[in-house]
């Protein structure tokens, strides 16, 4: 690692992104099956055994579609927004540790700040897409998306402060190590960690534009929101970015609040994967259970409940760190 950092970072990225994209693609299959069972229908069955090849078929379809940029759109911003959206989601994984030891692409001492700062850039491609489309639905979606993303950014940052305070480090690896032997921040100290964990998950849903906070898309009121004018692979990139964002947020939650690779028996990647994917499946469950909040409702939820409560968790965590 220390000898060839470029090779290590790049190679890690190549393997990790391939795996994550595979997981995200097949999680769409899983979600459709899951949603199907919840609604008493079979889900995809036609392509391959139990519809397992559906993601491949979808990918082929998306990649073959004609790529149209509307004449009225700002073509540069319009075309740069989808890859930028995916990049802001993927870039944050550069500091994420996967197993004890050196299994991290870049072991930055400000790791969590790096992830948060790259993650908060996600507002920009979304807004870019909505504005550049020159479409009223897209603009409405983008306006609401920007308002939502910057609002939920505040409680998201504050909840991330709880593990930072309790572990006394910005390094992702240190935060996980501080929870060794079952001292997960979601459980111990009692209170602030658990509340912050729930808030973190909800804010991540809002940042990833998932139900119950999928305001930017809101297909029943805004046609398809920011993705109205996008087709083929450009739409596919937005779709993929949304799933990747949710997946990555689940793993971040698992590392920051649920002890990462710590678990009964030998520690390792298997515990992290188990926790991350469980949270991920939980988010699907939320998606197919709850309705979308109205634009004014989520603003009220964020500024009147999430912000003061997350400040409270930070206060309690700080007192715990100093006096306990």
């Amino acid at each position: 690692m220390t000898e060839y950092p470029w090779l290590w970072g790049g190679g890690f990225a190549l393997v990790l992104i391939t795996v994550l994209m595979g997981v995200a693609a097949w999680s769409i299959w899983f979600e459709r099956k899951f949603a199907g069972r919840m609604q008493n229908r079979p889900g995809p069955t036609q392509v391959g055994p139990a519809g397992l090849l559906q993601p491949l078929a979808d990918l082929l379809k998306l990649i073959q579609k004609e790529d149209i940029t509307p004449t009225n759109a700002d073509s540069f911003l319009f075309n740069i927004a989808p890859p930028l959206g995916l990049l802001t989601v993927l870039g944050g994984m550069a500091v994420y540790p996967w197993a004890p030891g050196d299994w991290v692409p870049a072991n930055l001492n400000i790791g969590i700040l790096f992830t948060l700062s790259i993650g908060s850039l996600v507002t920009i491609p979304v807004w870019m897409a909505g504005w550049a489309s020159n479409n009223k639905y897209a603009l409405l979606g983008a306006m609401r998306a920007a308002a939502q993303a910057v609002s939920f950014e505040v409680p998201l940052l504050l909840t991330c402060l709880v593990p930072i305070i309790l572990s006394g480090s910005f390094r992702m690896g240190d935060i996980v190590e501080a929870q060794a032997d079952g001292h997960w921040f979601a459980l111990w100290p009692p209170g602030p960690g658990a509340v912050a964990f729930v808030l973190f998950l909800l804010c991540s849903l809002a940042e990833a534009n998932r139900i119950p906070f999928d305001i930017p898309e809101a297909e029943s009121e805004l046609v398809a929101g920011i993705t109205t004018e996008y087709m083929g692979m450009k739409f596919g990139l937005f779709y993929l970015a949304e799933y990747m964002h949710t997946l990555i947020a689940s793993f971040m939650g698992a590392s920051m609040f649920l002890g990462g690779w710590d678990g009964p028996g030998p520690d390792g990647l298997h515990w992290l994967v188990l926790k991350g994917l469980t949270l991920y499946a939980g988010i699907f469950w939320i998606r197919w259970t709850f309705l979308r909040y109205r634009a004014d409702q989520f603003m009220a939820i964020c500024w009147r409940i999430f912000v003061p409560v997350s400040l409270l968790t930070v206060t309690v965590a700080a007192f715990w760190r100093v006096y306990a």
Binding site: G9, F12, A13, P83, G91, M233
Partner: peptide, 25 residues
């Protein structure tokens, strides 16, 4: 070295994102 690795990671992510669009082209 840590920052080099992080930069390499982000660059590869950018190549993947742009490459997917190029494939669609």
């Amino acid at each position: 070295p840590q920052w080099s690795a992080a930069l390499a990671f982000v660059l590869v992510a950018a190549v993947v994102a742009v490459g997917t669009l190029m494939a669609a082209r």
